[in-house]
Design a protein around this nucleic acid. Structure first.
Length: 573
RNA sequence: GCGCCUGUAGCUCAGUCGGAUAGAGCACUCGCCUUCUAAGCGAGUUGUCGCAGGUUCGAUUCCUGCCAGGCGCGCCA
């Protein structure tokens, strides 16, 4: 399918070994049809999905195409497989890559790679370096990735932290898959919450009781104190100006604080988007006109509504309240239209489980704007995170002041462990972080397991250099790497580009973590069985150089994986 | 009531765009540091993949119903 497009900027897109094998199977199919060994009317698949068999006796790759085609071809599955095998083995283009094709079970085709195919994998990793694993799977699609979007009225807490880690990793993964990604943080800088925030700050500064429905944490006193000492005159302003002054000053401090904390957490945003800006320069009016032109806006009871029930929402939503104020939904609608008018094809929203009810109305906005909600909007729902320490759950309560902030979590376990742990679970399952485990240095703590593998390889390579052993693209010697552990390791390294592409398409960065854990395990086993460097005064051989080269390729893939997660790959531990 | 998510080994969880004997860590037992990082490796034990139907050559994976748990259903933001 994509074997003919040589993409210079991205070699792995066009020439990976599995692509070559898949292409060969497609050729075999068409040749067989042309030769009438398969029925001429047979509809062939557009691409072949190869899987890596769990059982290693089943070769390096397996495909079930023969099973799938048996029925339409009105042939026995194994007979289809037999035809395929014959043509596959006769294909000159893959002769150097494939060494054996076997038919097994009900009609699986098990394919074993030739040594040259294995060498090509190592060569690709070493020559592509940091971009090994990148692809054109999402070929240039413009994606707006919005995550966290916390109110600028307090510190980021544990719930935001999951999105900070996962959202950032997803951004990296989407980019690696060739998408053009803009990471965006939506700032709710208008509305009642902001007014309450301002009122709470001023009350704290005045030393009077904070409004019942206002903000109460200890941080409110701190910020109020900061504002008061910097601008004592705020307290003497007329009431309205005074409230505005406290609100704006508090907002600036909180926003700056969130930005600082997130940068420290290695989570970067391209755009900090102000909700307020949606109402500047008649932009909101423009959005309303556009929705009205599509015929989904109406007035009732003095309010302006969007008829979202036209597109599966439970009830219509108010945009402009009867008192003339803009409802939050007005912003949601305008924000979506802004994203689309800024050229984003796909808008990804990362929402907490407590907001999952928004998905339908968000999709309805897209539909009301004349878009395809199932393509233009991609809503990811994240379940809640619990945190345990000393065997007890740390409860999150703003009232009791026991809120766990992102910063506190990082102080407890560090950025690497926090990010890694938050990313390694699918977001739609609730998760529990155990602080004690995250501080431990054992197999229980996967981030150390993976980082240790990287550090271990770096140590071996340092020793290799000390011994004057050269390794690299010209020292692959794939024909010498015949141990099962070596084959298994190479096979895992070859998987990486597909894992990245899959994680991007499914929006599941945790797949990268699970992959790299498996890779680390395979490396540790290789290391236990295959001595890399010469012992004692033993002379260095090509096998030593070949293994050192394989180590170097493995370190590259582990480092690339961790880079996608925003986790460091230490050279020493 | 309606909607979303979850239910896999004693525990914490992977896996599932349908595939060949269902995986990892923890826990438990026993081995491996006189040469590359033992933060490691190896061996052993553990399953009605919530329950019941359906589609299929094949279902833990897809569909329907049910059971259990979590969450959400404002002219709040």
């Amino acid at each position: 399918m994509n074997t003919t497009d040589a993409d210079v900027s991205n070699p792995s897109a066009g020439a990976s070994v599995s692509d070559q094998v898949g292409g060969a199977i497609l050729r075999a199919l068409s040749l067989a049809v042309a030769a009438q060994e398969l029925p001429s009317g047979l509809v062939l698949p557009s691409q072949i999905t190869l899987e890596r068999p769990k059982n290693r006796d089943h070769g390096d790759y397996a495909t079930s195409v023969a099973l799938a085609l048996a029925k339409p071809a009105e042939m026995a599955p194994r007979a289809v497989a037999e035809v395929l095998r014959t043509y596959l083995l006769a294909d000159h283009e893959v002769k150097s890559v494939i060494s054996a094709v076997e038919i097994a079970g009900p009609g699986f085709l098990n394919i074993t790679l030739a040594r040259a195919g294995q060498g090509a994998i190592i060569a690709a990793i070493l020559s592509e370096g940091e971009i090994y694993g990148h692809s054109r799977a999402l070929g240039g699609v413009k994606i707006n990735l919005e995550f966290i979007s916390a109110n600028p009225t307090g510190p980021l807490h544990l719930g935001h932290t999951r999105w900070a880690a996962v959202g950032d990793a997803l951004g990296r993964v989407l980019s690696a898959a060739g998408a053009e990604v803009t990471r965006e943080f939506y700032i709710n800088d208008r509305g009642n919450q902001m007014e309450l925030f301002g009122a709470s700050l001023r009350a704290a500064a005045q030393g009077v009781a904070v409004p019942e429905d206002g903000y109460h944490g200890e941080y409110i006193n701190e910020i109020a104190g900061q504002i008061k000492s910097a601008h004592p005159e705020y307290l003497t302003l007329p009431d309205v100006q005074s409230l505005d002054a406290f609100r704006d000053a508090g907002y600036a401090l909180q926003l700056a604080d969130q930005q600082r904390v997130l940068e420290g957490f290695r989570t970067h945003f391209d755009i900090w988007f102000s909700e307020k800006s949606l109402y500047e320069n008649d932009f909101f009016k423009h959005c309303l006109d556009r929705l009205r032109a599509q015929g989904h806006v109406y007035e009732e009871g003095g309010a302006t509504w969007l008829r979202t029930t036209d597109f599966g929402d439970d009830k219509d939503r108010v945009m402009i309240k009867s008192d003339g104020a803009f409802a939050y939904f007005a912003s949601d609608s305008a924000y979506y239209i802004s994203k689309r008018e800024r050229g984003f094809e796909i808008c990804i929203y990362m929402l907490g489980a407590d907001h999952h009810g928004y998905v339908n109305r968000l999709k309805a906005i897209a539909a009301c704007a004349g878009d395809d909600p199932n393509y233009n909007i991609d809503a990811l729902i994240g379940q809640l995170v619990k945190i345990m320490e000393n065997g007890e759950e740390l409860k999150l309560s703003k009232r009791a002041g026991t809120i766990i902030t992102l910063e506190e979590l990082v102080e407890k376990v560090g950025v690497d462990a926090a990010r890694y742990t938050l990313i390694r679970y699918p977001v739609d399952t609730p998760m529990v972080m155990d602080v004690d485990v995250l501080r431990s240095r054992t197999n229980e703590n996967p981030v150390y397991y993976v980082q240790y593998a990287h550090a271990r390889i770096c140590a071996v390579l340092r020793n290799a250099s000390d011994l004057g052993i050269t390794y690299g693209v010209d020292q692959i010697h794939a024909e010498l790497l015949e141990n099962d552990r070596e084959r298994e390791l190479i096979g895992a390294l070859a998987e990486f580009p597909r894992v990245v592409a899959g994680a991007a398409e499914l929006r599941e960065p945790h797949r990268i973590a699970r992959y790299v854990e498996e890779l680390a395990g395979i490396y540790h086993r290789f290391y236990a069985d295959c001595r890399v460097l010469p012992m004692g005064d033993e002379a260095a051989t090509d096998l030593h150089r070949a293994r050192a080269t394989l180590c170097s390729a493995t370190a590259r893939v582990i480092a690339n994986s961790l880079a996608l997660l925003g986790v460091s790959a230490p050279e020493k531990m």
